[in-house]
Computed example of a mutant assay.
Amino acid sequence: MKFMKTAATSVAAIALLASGAVAETTKLRIQTHHAPETTAGKLYSGLFDNIQEMSNGEIEIEAFFSSSVVKSVETFDAAATGILDCDATGGAYQTGKNPAFQFVGDIMGGYATPTQQLSWLYYGGGLEAAQDLYNQYDMQLVGWMVYGQESFASTRPIASIADLKDWKFRSPPGMETKIFEKLGASPVVMDFTEIFTALETGIIDGADASNIATNKGLGLYDIAKFANYPGFHSMPSDHLACNKAVWDAMPEQHRSIMEGAMADAALKAALFVEKQNTEAVAALAAEGVTINTWSDEDLQAFRDVAQATWPEFATTPEAKALVASHIAYLSQLGLVKE
């Protein structure tokens, strides 16, 4: 039987050579801001390997980690102009280009879980709405990585929405600062690298850094003995987006492989980070860190304020269309208060 299979394979190979057919190849240069040793970096490495294996080597990927070609915020334009082929950073870097990117980068106060957010993308009309935005900038959205809700690190309790009053914390710029100001907090925009010293010296009471497992890895809970889990305020998504001309020129089967591999990677990312977070919570509790879980009422109160803030940032037709799409789908999920 083994001989027959080998013989049949050999005949097929000879026929292919005789016909002059040559496998089509695609070569892609892709940059991500993640370092290869980080969780996200490893997930992207796995994605790239999977794409190459699924295509039997027809898709070759040259990966650049840690924004080694251009700055993170410049990756999108570098792909659109042909310096790179694809961007594996995130839409939130492009809010200065169009505020609509906020609503594909970090929706804030929207979905409760990664699967809900991915469900909007694939089954709630999200991909079509987002694609209209990306195509305007000569890019094609291939898919998302959604790692899960982020958690705070705090030197004082954050057990309820009332605890946000006068809570001084590190915040990224943009919509988050506006939302938390409405809730009585005092967001301070500072670079990620300044968080540890600011917590240590008491300049801030807490920080929005990353998910609870990453926060633990950074050592934030060595100083800040309070955390919230599950998170609720921020669930940023990374994207894989490619130069549209490059994408359109790829063989159809190559595009299908990349879309399928990205959807697979998104699910794996959500599951893996959830496992990491669960392990981190158990370890932190054993170390004496207080883990606060918000009530359903407080979570809904936060969502109400966040969603009321969205229109303030939806100042372009593309942003308004994305907000309307999110609201419609969140209503179906019961996450918008009627």
Rank of each mutant, 00 (worst) to 15 (best):
I257S: 03
N98M: 02
Q307K: 10
S154Y: 13
T278N: 15
T197F: 13
V11K: 08
A227C: 01
D208K: 00
T75V: 13
Q332Y: 02
D85N: 12
L267T: 14
L267V: 14
Q253P: 01
T115D: 12
T197E: 15
I59R: 02
I161T: 14
V336R: 14
K178H: 10
A314M: 02
P173Q: 07
D106L: 01
E74N: 12
F3I: 09
T278F: 11
N211E: 02
L133H: 14
M258H: 06
Y111W: 12
T316E: 08
F169V: 08
A324D: 14
A261M: 05
S160F: 01
K268G: 09
A285C: 04
T39D: 06
S45W: 07
F3S: 08
A227L: 01
M262K: 09
H326Q: 03
I30D: 03
M235S: 04
V104S: 08
F65W: 08
G148V: 01
M190A: 08
T81K: 09
S19A: 10
T115Y: 14
Q300P: 03
S295A: 11
D248M: 00
W247H: 08
A308V: 03
S325H: 00
V289G: 02
H233A: 15
F152W: 01
G82V: 03
P230E: 03
A40E: 15
W167T: 05
G41E: 09
L284N: 03
E287C: 00
Y229K: 11
V323Q: 07
E200Y: 09
I223L: 07
L121R: 05
T89P: 02
T39W: 03
A245Q: 06
K225F: 06
P251S: 06
L141M: 10
A40N: 14
A283W: 00
E200G: 11
P173C: 07
T201P: 14
P311M: 00
M250A: 01
P230V: 03
E279C: 02
A13T: 07
F3E: 13
A40P: 11
L333W: 10
K27N: 14
S68Q: 11
Y137C: 10
Q102R: 00
T75H: 11
K182C: 05
V281I: 07
D205K: 15
L267I: 15
I51H: 07
V305Q: 01
L84P: 05
V146E: 06
S154A: 15
D106H: 02
G148Y: 00
Q253R: 13
A100V: 08
T177N: 05
E37P: 00
Q131F: 04
I51N: 05
T155G: 09
Y329K: 09
V305G: 03
H233L: 11
K97E: 10
I223R: 06
L333D: 08
S331T: 15
A283F: 00
I204Y: 00
A13K: 11
S186F: 06
G110F: 10
K244V: 13
D163A: 12
R156E: 11
K182D: 12
H33N: 15
A100R: 04
W247R: 07
E176N: 12
N292I: 00
P173N: 10
I257V: 05
A269Q: 13
A269G: 12
R170F: 14
